[in-house]
Amino acid sequence: MAAGLPALMLLLLTGLTAVNAVSTKAACLDTAREAALAASRGEPGVTAGSRSAPSGAEVTIVVEGGRVRATVRAPVRVLGGRLPAVSVVGVAVAVAEPGLPEPQP
């Protein structure tokens, strides 16, 4: 029983970290989608993405021809704060809207 409690705590912390990583990944994907769509319409994509990005996230927009790729990278703390953070990434691609201004990063 005494050896089982630390193992149970470790399993609990690992599970909570996994749930946090999955929810941060979902937030990154949503933010990347918003940023790519905004940039494809000619609006500043980084500004649009930064509004809903998870804390500590980095939003990057790349315009390649008629496509806009938005990448959102955010750190997730592992098992409290003693270990280094894991980085999760969300990527979305959108086609530039015809008849609108050039896509903006």
Rank of each mutant, 00 (worst) to 15 (best):
V86P: 03
L79M: 13
V63G: 01
L11F: 14
A85S: 14
A21N: 01
V88M: 03
R41M: 12
G65L: 05
L16R: 05
P84A: 06
R67T: 03
G15D: 05
V72E: 05
P54L: 07
T24K: 02
L11C: 13
V68H: 00
V59C: 07
S55F: 10
T17V: 05
G15K: 10
S23I: 09
G45W: 04
L29H: 06
L12F: 13
L5Q: 05
R77D: 14
A38S: 09
R41W: 07
L37N: 06
R73E: 13
S52W: 05
S40Q: 07
I61P: 01
V22Y: 14
A57Q: 02
L79W: 12
R33H: 13
V68L: 04
M9C: 09
T24E: 07
G65T: 06
R77H: 15
S55C: 00
A35Y: 06
A70T: 01
R82S: 15
I61M: 03
P6K: 08
E64Y: 07
C28L: 12
A53K: 00
V68F: 04
L8P: 03
L5E: 08
V88L: 11
S87G: 03
R33A: 15
R67F: 08
A70N: 00
R82A: 15
A18I: 14
R82Q: 13
C28W: 02
L12S: 08
T14C: 14
A53V: 07
E34V: 14
V78R: 04
S23T: 15
G15R: 10
